[in-house]
């Protein structure tokens, strides 16, 4: 990561205006992604992982207020761009794959038309060139008989096929960065394996940067190089994948890993009590403190500082080392 990263986010916050006052869905998130890198963002529902990436894409509704110290993609300041300039980048250099392939495709148009749209808008290809490129794309994502599939409507495709079409659309203009939001959650495991294989191959062979949003720790372990853990809108930890699974520094990460049935030893899983705090019951100090088994009085009253990189940038008063909370000695 010597050169400047492709995507660089500093202190990104998103709040939504609700009838009960502003709700902070994303709170001070930092992220750097370089070309050819696969970064995973993990978190439970409500952790703000999707909203943070939608903010990068500029796809949030008008009720959202996005602020950031820096939100740069490939040298562009995404916050300062006009909508017209933004549209020129999105879909070409920066593409997104959504969670529900069935509902993300337009049911009224054929697959060929929907892939061709981006090719026409961004690259100005004519009809014949679009057809050739669409067939090439469908073949690349592993769809059999691509010539015939161009005329298919989304309802004629299975979930796995629809997701491949979504990926083909994302790849259409050879993007530099792809954001995949739970790309395999709606799919069966054998199909999930095919799609993950495809994404990892694209990232490795074509040098595409990939941000993978997921809640599945198994998917993270098998694909990502680096992992960000989100909780209630905050980024609580960021580490290399191997380190995160070996020695998680934030108590939430540790508890999340311990709660996986495949990592448990006994009949009773070490579960995390309670639920993610909502708008009304946000605690004063550390947001995880009501559910944390290491929480002290200070955690409940004082917001935690960010640790240094040697402690996974953990947002915690007493980050864990080898499962044992450490007294903080110096500020990082």
């Amino acid at each position: 990561m010597a050169d400047t990263p492709l995507l660089s986010i500093r202190n990104l916050s998103v709040s939504f205006a609700t009838s009960r006052g502003p709700f902070r869905a994303v709170d001070g998130v930092d992220l750097d992604v370089s070309s050819g890198e696969l970064v995973a963002i993990v978190g439970e529902s409500g952790s703000g992982k999707s909203v943070a990436m939608l903010a990068v894409m500029g796809l949030l509704p008008w009720t959202a207020t996005v602020t950031a110290d820096r939100l740069a993609f490939d040298g562009h300041d995404m916050l300062a761009l006009s909508p017209r300039e933004r549209r020129r980048i999105i879909g070409r250099d920066l593409a997104m794959i959504f969670q529900e392939p069935m509902s993300s495709l337009n049911p009224c148009f054929t697959v060929g038309f929907q892939i061709g749209e981006a090719l026409k808008t961004h690259l100005g290809l004519d009809r014949a060139e679009r057809r050739v490129r669409s067939i090439e794309l469908l073949r690349e994502v592993g769809i059999p008989e691509p010539e015939r599939r161009l005329k298919a409507f989304p309802h004629q495709l299975s979930g796995g096929m629809s997701q491949r079409v979504m990926i083909a659309m994302a790849l259409a203009c050879r993007p530099k960065l792809i954001i995949a939001d739970e790309p395999t959650t709606a799919l069966d495991v054998t199909i999930q394996a095919q799609i993950l294989d495809l994404l990892v191959r694209l990232q490795r062979d074509n040098g595409v940067g990939l941000v993978l949003i997921t809640h599945d720790m198994g998917v993270v372990a098998e694909t990502a190089q680096r992992v960000c853990v989100h909780y209630a809108g905050q980024q609580v930890e960021m580490q290399e994948t191997a380190g995160l699974f070996r020695d998680p520094h934030h108590p939430y990460t540790a508890a999340l890993l311990a709660a996986l049935p495949e990592r448990a030893s006994g009949r009773i899983l070490p579960s995390i009590p309670g639920v993610v705090p909502g708008l009304a019951d946000r605690p004063k100090g550390c947001l995880f403190s009501p559910r944390c088994r290491f929480a002290t009085e200070r955690c409940r009253t004082v917001p935690p500082p960010r640790s240094g990189p040697e402690l996974g940038l953990a947002l915690c008063h007493t980050p864990l080392v080898g499962g044992v909370p450490q007294r903080r000695t110096q500020a990082a």
């Binding site: 394996a193 294989d197 720790m217 890993l257 495949e262």
Partner: peptide, 25 residues
């Protein structure tokens, strides 16, 4: 066997072999 090898394991150290099935149901 394919189903088991396709299920991701939450352990990056695990060296596994993966059987990727072709096609769909």
């Amino acid at each position: 066997r394919a189903l088991m090898s396709a299920t991701p394991i939450a352990d990056p150290g695990a060296r596994r072999e993966r059987i990727v099935l072709e096609g769909e149901l």
